[in-house]
């Protein structure tokens, strides 16, 4: 294992600490809820869902976090403005964990950020994400909101190489006027989480792992990803899933360890239903990493899995 010469930043979002040197803090894990085709969603257009089932899922993730010492966040996905507000209100009542505001549509993310500010939840909210497609409206909404945490996405559709992704964050890579990191800071984002962007396997998924290391070495920001998207979008594996779901699950959950070994500080692990598989996997990797860096005088926190599970 290794440590970074660059000082590693640690951000504190609603009491959850993310970042640091490998082995210092437990990996923070975010399960997604209300994602497309999520069975608990009853009427997407109205933001209606089965509250009992949603509560069970969120509480299950919290229990896993308590058991292993890996802090949790709730990754909220909304497809429209009505839904995202209802989802935020509900999640914030069930858990005190931070939550991510995510949508494929900018106007939904904007509404989520505005709503979190209006109802006093901005200090628990993480915008997902500032990316190369960011709109002026989004920048304005972030600037005028109280949300100060955001994922900054390294996806460069014009140049998916490591250099292309780094350039996008650093100087805009001729796509945006400024680098995305500068855009984030100008928009009032003081808690930057870098996501190197998991593209499909065959389109540079592995580059994201190397970029995690480089991003932490260059800037010291916490970094992590939704690495499960690589196995999830792998067509060969989809066919194997038809044979045996366990084959898919092994790859899906196992991918988390790859991101942890590449110094990932947080992981968006996909459907929140997978919490009971994901947390032990992440805890195991955290313990191994913490033991590997013990000589570097990295002292894991009291709640780190190495102090809770072995």
């Amino acid at each position: 294992m290794f440590r970074f010469q660059t000082e590693q930043k640690i951000v504190n979002i609603a009491g959850v600490k993310i970042g640091g040197q490998p082995g210092e803090l437990a990996t923070v894990l975010a399960g997604t809820i209300f994602y497309p085709n999520h069975k608990i969603v009853e009427d997407e257009s109205k933001g209606l869902f089965n509250k009992k089932k949603a509560e069970i899922l969120i509480n299950k993730q919290s229990s896993c976090a308590d058991e292993t010492g890996n802090p949790s966040m709730v990754h909220i996905f909304g497809s429209n403005e009505v839904g995202i507000k209802k989802y935020i209100d509900f999640v914030s009542e069930i858990t005190e964990a931070p939550f991510l505001i995510d949508s494929t549509e900018a106007r939904v993310r904007i509404e989520g950020v505005k709503h979190a500010t209006e109802v006093g939840l901005a200090d628990r909210a993480i915008n997902n994400s500032i990316n190369m497609g960011i709109t002026d409206d989004e920048i304005e909404a972030l600037t005028h909101s109280d949300v100060d945490a955001s994922i900054v996405m390294g996806f460069n559709a014009m140049d998916s190489s490591l250099e292309g992704r780094i350039a996008l964050l650093e100087n805009g890579a001729s796509v945006t006027e400024k680098g995305l990191l500068q855009i984030a800071e100008d928009s009032g984002i003081s808690k930057i989480l870098i996501d190197p962007s998991i593209t499909p396997m065959g389109n540079g998924a592995g580059i994201a792992l190397r970029m995690t290391l480089v991003a932490k070495a260059k800037w010291g920001f916490p970094a992590g990803s939704g690495i499960h998207n690589a196995p999830s979008s792998w067509n060969w594996l989809k066919n194997k899933k038809k044979e045996n779901d366990l084959i898919f699950k092994a790859c899906d959950v196992g991918s988390i360890g790859l991101q942890q070994m590449a110094a990932g500080d947080f992981i968006l692990y996909g459907p929140i239903e997978n919490a009971s598989y994901v947390f032990p996997m992440a805890a195991m990797a955290d313990i191994m990493i913490a033991e590997a860096v013990a000589d570097f005088n990295v002292i894991p926190g009291e709640d780190h899995p190495i102090n809770k599970l072995v």
Partner: peptide
């Protein structure tokens, strides 16, 4: 080698 300006010294375990 990790990238053109980031590397790991395996004897010290430092990435710089």
């Amino acid at each position: 080698v990790i990238s053109k300006d980031v590397s790991l010294d395996t004897s010290s375990g430092i990435i710089a």
